[in-house]
Computed example of a mutant assay.
Amino acid sequence: MNSTRYTMIGLMSGTSGDGLDIAYCSYELQEHWSYAILDAITIPFPLELGQKLQNCHNLSALDLALLDVDFGKWMGEKVRNYCLQKDIQPMAICSHGHTVFHQPSKGLSLQIGNGWALHQAAGLPVINDFRMHDVQLGGQGAPLVPIGDRFLFPKSDFCINLGGIANISMESSGDRVAFDTCPFNLLLNAQAKILGAEYDRNGAWAREGKVSTQLFEALNALPFYSKTDAKSLGREDLEKDFIPLLASSDLSERDKLNTLIEHYAFQIATIIKNFQASENPSVLITGGGAYNAFFIERLTDQLGGKWNPTLASPQLIEFKEALVFGFLGVLRLRNENNTLATVTGAKRDSCGGVIYG
């Protein structure tokens, strides 16, 4: 395709499982890529669907196959209604899908949200399954957002997304480097639910707690942090390593929250210090964790105040991943690489995504 301007819908169903992000975006290539989030909404999952998605890794093969189709159809219907309401006609829908299994060492990363069902329900071309090509090239299939960081946010030294799992990307010696840094909201939200809320607003409960040196050191000693090559975290890793540590601790929920925040701030600050090329690097933080004021304070402390946080709009904080998946779709339509081997550890860069319609 020779067009230099594209309008796409990016769909993101993150590991936090709160709803479907729909971002209607435009992308234009002149001397450099530019973007605009023209409109964006989050549609909460209906209770039954949300519960199925949260527990999909425990479903039978048949029930998982049915959920794959049902979820694709549901997303397609929501996008169709959205486009009718807004009177828009995007070129394609670019869907991340909902991750069920992420085991790249076994050649597997499965996202559900059936492409044909989504295409038929929406009446628009669909691009999905962005991860599997890279996984079959020996890569992690994640993270995928760094190609968007490179082209859409070139002025930020570090791009951090604080979703269910936290990840970071940056340039290093001419290559884009990126990896998951630590869990984030998946563990914080689970602790907050025990205290009676969906999440810890602004980190207020964490602020009331105290750091447990024992738990802090045990978290830092987990095997994930000793990996030096391309690495990514899945729900399986949390269930195997992180959750048992928290469950076996007799700390209060507030102390667990405080210790988790300190652990995250320490891990992310360590990476920034290792990769920074200037004394006060610019850092763009997006994802729900960007609203956790207590975490931002602890990260500032761990960095000795030597950083320059980029002020992101609420729209960018909440919809950056959907924006970037739209951009991955643009690159797929252009048959240009949208997955970086320096990020995933694959044999080579590749152009991932399956087109329906």
Rank of each mutant, 00 (worst) to 15 (best):
A92V: 13
A23K: 08
L38F: 05
L186V: 00
T42Q: 13
C351W: 02
G19N: 12
L245Y: 07
Y27C: 15
E279C: 12
M75E: 07
K347P: 01
Q191F: 00
V343T: 12
K106I: 02
V283Y: 05
T228W: 08
I37F: 09
T310S: 10
S278Q: 15
R80M: 07
N338R: 15
K240Y: 14
R348Q: 12
T181D: 01
G123P: 01
T270E: 02
G19I: 06
F216M: 08
W116C: 12
R176C: 13
V283F: 03
Y291L: 12
K273V: 08
D87T: 12
I93K: 13
D200E: 02
L188R: 05
G287I: 03
S60C: 04
I37T: 05
T310G: 08
C159W: 06
K240F: 12
D180W: 10
T42D: 02
F216T: 01
I160K: 15
Y356H: 10
L260H: 04
P44A: 14
N128C: 12
E198Q: 03
Q111G: 13
M8C: 08
L84C: 05
T259A: 09
E318T: 02
R80T: 00
K320N: 02
V69H: 15
N2R: 15
G97C: 07
Q136L: 13
V100A: 02
M8A: 14
D200T: 01
G123H: 08
V324Y: 06
L331V: 00
A341Q: 07
Q103H: 11
F153R: 08
D229N: 15
T228N: 11
V126N: 09
L188F: 00
F295Q: 02
T300Q: 14
S313L: 07
S232R: 07
L299S: 01
E336C: 07
F184K: 12
G97Q: 04
G19T: 09
C182I: 02
K256V: 00
I285L: 13
L66K: 14
G17S: 12
I272Y: 02
L246C: 04
Q51K: 13
L66P: 04
V145Y: 06
D21L: 06
M1I: 07
F184H: 11
S60M: 08
T7M: 09
I88L: 15
G288C: 09
S16Y: 09
A221R: 14
A293I: 03
L67Y: 09
D129K: 11
E236T: 06
Q276N: 11
Q302I: 06
I355L: 14
L29V: 05
N292I: 01
T344F: 13
L11Q: 04
E297I: 06
W74Q: 11
G148N: 08
T259C: 11
I127Q: 04
H263F: 05
R207Q: 01
L311E: 03
T15S: 13
L118D: 00
D175M: 10
D301W: 13
K347W: 08
G289L: 06
F71T: 12
N58V: 05
G164C: 14
H96Q: 01
P125I: 09
S169V: 03
K320M: 08
P90I: 11
M132T: 10
S226R: 14
D301R: 09
E171Y: 06
L333F: 06
E321N: 13
K193M: 04
S313F: 06
N161E: 01
Q85S: 11
Q214Y: 07
